[in-house]
Design a protein around this nucleic acid. Structure first.
Lengths: 219, 219
DNA sequence: CGACCATTTGATATGGATCAAGCGATGTGG
DNA sequence: CCACATCGCTTGATCCATATCAAATGGTCG
């Protein structure tokens, strides 16, 4: 939403005749990515940041022992790839076929220097990313049940359709986000189903039957 | 350093005669806190943010089961308590006797709206906080040895004196930062000592004898 | 010196990882 | 249209890293 207003601001306000601030340069064309296609790699120059139009995206790092840690999931409307340093600190891939708006960082930075509302939006986006990282961090010190419950509540909040959620990501993605194995995620979901806390009409579709119980687990 | 320049900017540039932007209101007096004194509590209004002058600070949350998770440690020069929402999401306490500069949020926000360098600094501080949270997050999915090694390297980078580090925090603080128990932290340090990777002249003082080994563990 | 608190060390228990197999859906080629 | 391969997920059996419980040690301050 805030990201949306960055785009709106740049395209709707009268712009001086500098090519950097023209809406074409700033927004670029929405770009399609296939399932599992790389959007950018860790350590690549962070000259662009991105906004999800449709589909879903994951950012991740691979540890030396081959384990993968997912940093975040991004859904339509979310901005990702905005870095404080010169390089991306995670890699990014499309989880499902995705359309992504590619935004030139230098253009927005230049714009922010003159338009304080743009600067405010950049700050707000970064601040929300920080809050999300902190929430994620708190999940990683909990039990498997608490992590899975927290994940389900997060996704239910972020994806429309209050109590029925269609997850875009695989069990492996969930496991790598929560610092668990795929087996533990699967077993925990089964437990929650047996406790009638959730229902699993299909493996990707999850119905929250008892939010209270999930919140209690999430503590 | 960036935070420093916020303060310098506000005190050295000519300021219009608005009380909000006067340097007194903005900076306030450096405030002393005793060991373990609360600086602010979770969910309290985030009307101020803070900069460590001397001593050390921890931010933390207490989970429903009583376990405490430390979000970050702050050392002299570090800014903390800068939130995207209206309330603090962690509590903050002095680890050791500390002097802390108390800064009025609304004043800096107002200033940032007119001075884009201030806005840039706010963004940079938030961005570095995000990077730190992401690094912390990556630690929490590793083995005990890797977490402790990563912690030692982080502290060695942040505290002066390359290879000899005087830690301001207790084993319990370290354990709650790393999502381990105090016993596991202690045992791991002992192991590293036996492997001649570190030396422990006193329990709070740690000498890094083999950075390479620590980096390998940290992977 | 003695009490207290932080830290270390030791013995045992356990949650989740690992290893292994089975199952169900999806898609492909004959 | 069906047999079969593949892939994602679930379930089962065992193992291990770290938690937990318990006690000893050491450093600090009155």
């Amino acid at each position: 939403m805030l990201a949306q207003s960055i785009v709106q601001t740049t395209s709707s306000r009268p712009v001086p005749n500098h090519s950097l601030t023209g809406s074409i340069d700033l927004i670029g064309a929405p770009m399609p990515f296939a399932r599992n296609a790389e959007i950018y790699g860790e350590n690549e120059p962070a000259d662009y940041f991105y906004k999800v139009i449709s589909g879903a995206v994951r950012t991740y790092k691979v540890l030396s022992d081959g384990r993968r840690q997912i940093g975040s999931f991004y859904l339509p409307g979310d901005v990702f790839g905005l870095e404080s340093g010169p390089a991306h600190t995670f890699s990014a891939e499309a989880i499902s076929p995705a359309k992504v708006l590619v935004i030139k960082r230098s253009a927005v930075t230049a714009l922010a220097a003159r338009d304080s509302t743009v600067a405010q939006q950049l700050l707000a986006i970064t601040g929300r990313e920080l809050a999300r990282a902190q929430d994620h961090l708190m999940l990683l010190v909990k039990t498997a049940q608490e992590r899975v419950a927290g994940f389900l509540l997060e996704m239910a909040d972020r994806i429309a359709g209050r109590n029925e959620v269609e997850l875009p990501m695989s069990r492996q993605d969930i496991a790598d986000y929560l610092g668990l194995t795929i087996e533990t995620v699967s077993r925990t979901l089964t437990q929650l189903e047996h406790a009638c806390t959730i229902a699993l009409p299909t493996s990707r579709r999850i119905e929250l039957r008892n939010r209270g119980a999930l919140h209690r687990l999430n503590s």
